[in-house]
């Protein structure tokens, strides 16, 4: 399992494709974490389930937690859930790449 993260539109999806031809890519994982939250599924359990079901996937996500903590409780919960889920993925992944301006920085 590999993880590619970055701010919105930083090219993480493209880089993940380029560096992992033929691999299963699970894009917009932050949105999947939001959907899990709306279903009432615990963020960490959701991430563990994805790891179990897609052990060789390349996960791609936006980093969403680096702003003023939102006033709206649902938006607050979303950022927390995305963070908790991505911590699990990052721990399990053999490689984590953070993408800025299309450039990948390997942080794990």
């Amino acid at each position: 399992m590999k993880l590619y993260i970055g701010g919105a539109y930083q090219g993480q999806q493209e880089l993940a494709r380029r560096e992992n031809p033929g691999a299963e890519i699970l894009g917009d994982f932050h949105d999947a974490a939001r959907a899990a939250l709306l279903r009432g599924e615990d963020a960490r359990d959701f991430a563990r389930r994805v790891c179990g079901e897609h052990p060789d996937a390349v996960i791609v996500a936006n980093e969403v937690g680096s702003g003023i903590v939102p006033v709206d409780p649902a938006e607050r919960a979303f950022r927390e859930a995305a963070g908790r889920a991505l911590c699990v993925i990052a721990q399990r992944a053999e490689q984590v790449t953070r993408v800025v301006c299309g450039i990948g920085v390997r942080i794990k």
Binding site: G65, R76, R79, G83, R84
Partner: peptide, 8 residues
């Protein structure tokens, strides 16, 4: 430092 829910 780090964002919300990042495990800091």
């Amino acid at each position: 430092t780090g964002g919300s829910g990042c495990g800091k």
